[in-house]
Design a protein around this nucleic acid. Structure first.
Lengths: 215, 215
DNA sequence: TATTTTGCCATACAAATGTATGGCATTATT
DNA sequence: AATAATGCCATACATTTGTATGGCAAAATA
C-alpha cells in the first residue's frame, strides 16, 4: 500500500509566510507550468514591493528549499526532492495543495516529481512497489492524477486514508466505498463515504513508463 | 501481430526552422522545466537578434502550435495536443523512416501528454492487438519509438516485415534475428538480418497508457 | 512573372525583472 | 535584557524582455 502524507512535515523549518510562498511557487511551477516572478508573487500575496518577496526567497533558499539563479527571470528551482522523505511526518488534514510526501518505511512509495511540466490540472505520482502489479502498473511507473476528474466505479484513484495515501481501484455502493487492490495480497479497504480520515486526491488518468534506463 | 500506425506528421505545416524552434521550446518546457525567452532561443540557434525569434514565434503561433501571452516573459504555451491527432493518416508503402504505413482499419487518434518527454527524432505508435500483453503492453497503449536509439537484445523494437509493422522483443545472434512475442500464442519470427522485406524502425523507449476514455 | 512567405538583421522603447541598500516595527531566541 | 530573525516598505539601478518598425535577400507559390 502506498503511504504518503501531506506536506508540512518537511517544511518544518519554514515560517508560515515562507511556506505559503513556497507552496505558491510549487503550484505555479507544477500546475500552471510557469515559475512566477517576484512581482507576481508580491501581487499574489498583496505585497507592495518586490523586495519583500526577494527577502523571503532568500530565506527560503537559505533553508535549502529553493535555488535561485542570479539575474535570470522565472528561474526559481525547487529543491525539495530530498525533502520528500521525512522521518517524522506531520499528521494533519489533507487539504488541496502540494506537495505530497512519503513515509520512508512504506512498502510502496510515491514520489511527486517537481520538475515536470503539467499542461492541465493534473500531477504525477511515481509508483513504488508492487501493490498494483496485477493491474499492470509497476514500480517506477508514473501515474498521472487528475483531482478534478469524475470518480467512477472501477477507476483507479489516489486517496488518503488515515494520513496514508493509496492507489487503488474505486467502487462505491450505497455510501460505502471500497478500495480494491488488484494484488490479492492486499486486502480491500471498506469505509463509509463520510469517514473523516478519508479523502480522495484524484483519479488516475494515465500511466507513463520509461523503458530507457530500466535495468 | 500488433498492427500500429503512425501518429506524427503533426508538424507538417511548419518549416524546418520553425520545427526546430518549437522542439527546443517543448524540450525546455518539459525537460528543463523553464520556458525560454526570445533571447535564449536566439542564442541557442545563433541568431544575433531577438526579433528574428520573435517573427518565427509569430509564424508558429499563426499556425496554431503556440500561444503567446503578450508582454509576459517566458509565457509561451504549447498548443500541440490537438495536433497529435491526425485526421487523415497517410496510406502508402512502408518506406524507411517516416512516415510509416498506416493500416486503414487501424485508424485511431493518439494524445501524448506533454509530461512525457518526446525526443525530436521519436514518434508515436498506437499498439493494436494483444501480442504484447504478456509484456504488459496492451492494445491502445501508445509506445514512443526512437529510430536512433541503440538496438540491444531484449529491447522492444518496432520492425517492418513484409509491409506489416510489429512490436516485438529483439534478439540477434550470429546474423540471425529473432522477434519474440511475450504472448505464447504468437510465434517467434526468425529471419536473417539481410532479409529484404525486413527493416528496423526503432526502439521502444516509453509507453503511455490512457485510463480516461477506456471502456 | 509577380507575389507571398520565409529568414535574418538593426535600431528603438517601454515595461518587467532581479538586485542592492536602508529603514522600521514586531516577534523569537538566547 | 540583549540579540537575532522575521516581515514589510521605499528608492534606485542595470539588465532583461517583449514588442514595433524598417530593411534586405532567398525561396516558395501563384
Amino acid at each position: 500500500m502506498a503511504l504518503l502524507f501531506y506536506s508540512d512535515g518537511f517544511m518544518k523549518n519554514l515560517t508560515e509566510t515562507q511556506k505559503n510562498i513556497l507552496n505558491y511557487i510549487i503550484y505555479q511551477k507544477t500546475k500552471a507550468g510557469i515559475t512566477p516572478t517576484l512581482a507576481e508573487i508580491a501581487n499574489k500575496f498583496g505585497y507592495k514591493n518586490r523586495a519583500t518577496v526577494q527577502q523571503h526567497l532568500q530565506a527560503i533558499e537559505r533553508k535549502g528549499f529553493l535555488k535561485r539563479k542570479p539575474k535570470l527571470s522565472r528561474s526559481l528551482e525547487l529543491n525539495i526532492q530530498d525533502k520528500f522523505f521525512v522521518s517524522t511526518p506531520v499528521i494533519g488534514e489533507v487539504a488541496a495543495g502540494n506537495p505530497l510526501t512519503i513515509y520512508p518505511d512504506s512498502i510502496d512509495t510515491v514520489q511527486l516529481p517537481t520538475i515536470a511540466y503539467f499542461p492541465n490540472d493534473s500531477f504525477l505520482l511515481k509508483v513504488k512497489g508492487d501493490s498494483l502489479k496485477d493491474a499492470f502498473i509497476f514500480s517506477n511507473d508514473v501515474v498521472i492524477v487528475n483531482p478534478n476528474s469524475e470518480v467512477k466505479n472501477g477507476k483507479f484513484v489516489v486517496a488518503i486514508l488515515n494520513d496514508a495515501a493509496v492507489v487503488k481501484r474505486y467502487y462505491k455502493t450505497d455510501g460505502k466505498i471500497e478500495l480494491r487492490s488488484e494484488n490479492p495480497e492486499y486486502q480491500t479497504i471498506r469505509i463509509d463515504e463520510n469517514f473523516p480520515a478519508f479523502s480522495l486526491v484524484g483519479v488516475v488518468i494515465g500511466i507513463y513508463r520509461s523503458l530507457e534506463r530500466q535495468n
